[in-house]
């Protein structure tokens, strides 16, 4: 009886967005009296970080500090339209819509600044700290707070912008089935190192190596978090989760957190993650979607690693001790047969 170590890998291509019926998202942006740019969205942040990404895209486009951006996702009834945060589309669709809205608002901002400073708008630039200044004459500048006040109370201007990203509907060509369902594809590969106890059938995932090509990682720390949190879910699908262990019988079916096991803090592998950045031509600052794909590659990688460790080829999840032991028994029978 032994602890058998094995390695396996698996790769995934994953589409960003889904546009069978067209796939739009909108963003509206406006400056308050004191120069905070409010982005109105109907896209909901449930932890994936769309508010942070939207704020980053707006700050970058406006040329202002991120502290000058406020993201308001308060109400999907009254906000601009969003198809939803699914299909790994949020960063791509919403990011593009925000950039478009912020670019329009930036145009107005520079026009008003040009009036205030009595110069040509084309000669102005943002310095990234909150000032709009004359290129080459840096003392001629105005802070966004003063500018927004002047826009409201002196010039009667609204510093605002509208943005939408629409991927047009694509129906399959009946003869060939050909279609254009997504906007870009992200790619990933995970290698898993596992240990299989051939006495108990318990599989432990020791390490995961994750390599992701996701266009540009707009926020590398959050992207890493997404990869590793998603890989944790992959491990959970691979080794733990099932609602009907003896389908169709409900026997031993879990009914609550205590029975529906997922890996706890002591069950997690060491993870090593890196990004290959190849900006996507149609992505916001080159980003592709990374949402759903992160749980995918670890599962087949773990199955392959189990095969490498002990020769058992498992085809149904989860890879429970019972399935591993049955697989090992079947292998032993096979070996014994010829004699």
């Amino acid at each position: 009886m032994a602890l058998l170590r094995g390695r396996g890998y698996a790769s995934v291509n994953y589409p960003t967005g889904m546009n069978l019926g067209g796939d739009p998202s909108q963003a509206l942006i406006h400056a308050t009296t004191t120069g905070t740019f409010v982005i109105s969205l109907s896209s909901v942040d449930l932890g994936q970080g769309i508010k942070t990404i939207a704020a980053q895209c707006a700050a970058e486009t406006l040329g202002l500090p991120i502290a000058n951006v406020l993201v308001d996702t308060a109400d999907t009834d009254t906000g601009p339209h969003c198809m939803g945060t699914f299909a790994s589309r949020g960063t791509h669709r919403v990011g593009n819509a925000v950039i478009m809205a912020a670019a329009e608002a930036r145009g107005v901002m520079l026009e008003v600044a040009a009036e205030e400073l009595e110069v040509d708008a084309a000669d102005l630039e943002t310095d990234g700290t909150g000032f709009i200044r004359l290129k080459g004459a840096e003392e001629k500048r105005i802070h966004i707070t003063d500018l927004a006040l002047a826009a409201h109370f002196k010039h009667g201007r609204t510093i605002s912008g509208r943005g939408i990203y629409l991927k047009e509907p694509s129906a399959p060509v009946p003869e060939t089935g050909e279609m254009d369902p997504d906007s870009c594809q992200a790619h990933a590969c995970t290698a898993a190192v596992v240990e299989v106890d051939d006495e108990t059938g318990v599989v432990e995932v020791l390490e995961l190596y994750n390599a992701y090509e996701i266009g540009r990682a707009l926020n590398p720390a959050m992207a890493t978090q997404q990869v590793e949190g998603g890989a944790w879910m992959g491990v959970s699908h691979a080794l733990f989760e099932t609602t009907e262990p003896y389908y169709p019988s409900r026997e031993h079916g879990p009914r609550d957190f205590a029975g529906y096991l997922m890996p706890g803090p002591a069950d997690i592998p060491v993870q090593h993650s890196l990004f290959l950045e190849r900006p996507a031509g149609n992505g916001p600052y080159g980003a592709k979607g990374i949402g759903e794909m992160t749980a995918n590659a670890p599962i087949p990688a773990i199955a392959n690693a189990i095969f490498d460790a002990c020769g058992v080829r498992l085809e149904s999840m989860p890879f429970t001790p019972e399935r591993v032991l049955r697989g090992l028994d079947a292998l032993r029978l096979k070996v014994e047969e010829p004699c």
């Binding site: 590793e228 803090p265 002591a266 997690i268």
Partner: peptide, 20 residues
């Protein structure tokens, strides 16, 4: 010690590592 302290707390997002 940290792993033990949080072992009664479920997280479904982070994979626990960042919390530790």
């Amino acid at each position: 010690d940290v792993v033990e302290a949080i072992s009664g707390n479920v997280c479904r997002c982070t994979g626990y590592r960042p919390i530790v």
